[in-house]
């Protein structure tokens, strides 16, 4: 109950102008690869509305285009996301091909809903290729985790984390990085990252013997299934106002969309995964990775929408 706040209904583009800021691309150093919307979960905060009934997945031909681009442009970071990438039929092929082409290969996964043989196969793959793994865990309690990710997600995620710990991921003395991502389980902002990481580390270690490398807290982006929840629950207006009120101009310079390209399962290019969800292509019109002769020039404008406020609130989403 702090001092009064004014409700802002200003669009993100206008807010940038008001602060004399421009959202333009910097040097491109990262490639985010969205391999599709198929997922074993149907998280209530998912901006892409991924789920078990989605059939959009990246095929071998597009994967080869991604690998060719990685070879040509030598991205410092390649971040493979979905959906649940582990459900994409040729994901092992893509991961093995990308690993030698970048110094940091990240893979977001949850390993839920897989049979034992497939889990073992993937663990073998991780041991061989050593990607940075990113696992979503919205809370250190079952009720909030299952509320966001669906019944059974808490138990399944804990099993996954234990298995990853067992092969050295997230353990001290190994270089196998296991990072957690926490999104709020509702229409409110996330806790400060440092304090949350400290608490996760204590809680998970003390209660479950689980360790991890780093925790990242991110605000939910008002798109897709999360926007539907906000609308249905009557929270949309207040949530958007909270994001806009918390606009931090200092975050703009470090936004990830300035330094990464995002490619979807069909090879279409975006500046970030949220613009992918919002249907705002890189450069303002649909272009494909296969046609990319050069990386985007620094200074190229980035299309924006009001969902961008989620990346500029508080400490930001970099």
């Amino acid at each position: 109950m702090s001092a009064a706040h004014e409700t802002h209904e200003t669009g993100f583009a206008e807010t940038l102008v008001k602060h004399d800021l421009k959202l333009h691309r910097d040097r491109t150093s990262a490639l985010q690869v969205n391999v599709g919307l198929l997922c074993n979960l149907a998280c209530r905060h998912c901006h892409l509305e991924a789920g078990p009934k989605r059939d959009e997945v990246m095929g071998r031909e597009t994967m080869d285009e991604v690998v060719a681009a990685a070879r040509r442009f030598r991205f410092e970071v390649i971040d493979v996301t979905g959906g649940a990438p582990e459900l994409v039929p040729d994901i092992d092929y893509l991961v093995r091909a990308l690993a030698p082409l970048t110094s940091r290969l990240m893979l977001r996964c949850n390993l839920g809903g897989l049979d034992l043989a497939r889990r073992r196969e993937l663990l073998e793959l991780f041991r061989a290729v050593r990607p940075v793994l990113v696992v979503s865990l919205p809370a250190t309690n079952p009720s909030q985790t299952d509320a966001l990710r669906g019944g059974g997600a808490w138990a399944s995620t804990l099993d996954t984390l234990r298995e990853l710990n067992a092969i050295g991921y997230g353990r001290e003395g190994t270089s196998l990085e296991l990072n957690l991502v926490a999104n709020p389980a509702g229409a409110f902002l996330p806790p400060a990252q440092g304090a949350a990481e400290k608490r996760y580390r204590t809680d998970l270690s003390r209660k479950y013997g689980i360790s991890f490398t780093s925790l990242y807290t991110f605000a939910n982006v008002p798109l897709g299934r999360y926007r539907d929840f906000l609308t249905r629950s009557g929270n949309l207006e207040q949530y958007l106002a909270t994001l806009a009120d918390g606009f931090n101009p200092c975050t703009v310079a470090g936004l990830m969309c300035r330094s990464q390209l995002s490619v979807d399962w069909e090879g279409r290019l975006y500046d970030c995964d949220f613009n992918l969800a919002a249907g705002l292509p890189h450069g303002g019109e649909v272009t494909y990775l296969r046609g990319l002769a050069e990386l985007p020039a620094p200074g190229t404008p980035i299309p924006v929408g009001d969902h961008c406020y989620a990346c500029t609130v508080g400490s930001g989403f970099t």
């Binding site: 250190t140 909030q144 509702g186 409110f188 996330p190 304090a195």
Partner: peptide, 17 residues
């Protein structure tokens, strides 16, 4: 205060428990 600190607790990472 109940409104503000229910939200505040959730935003600071407190659980309903």
């Amino acid at each position: 205060c109940i409104d503000a600190y229910t939200r505040g607790c959730l935003e600071k990472g407190a659980s309903l428990g």
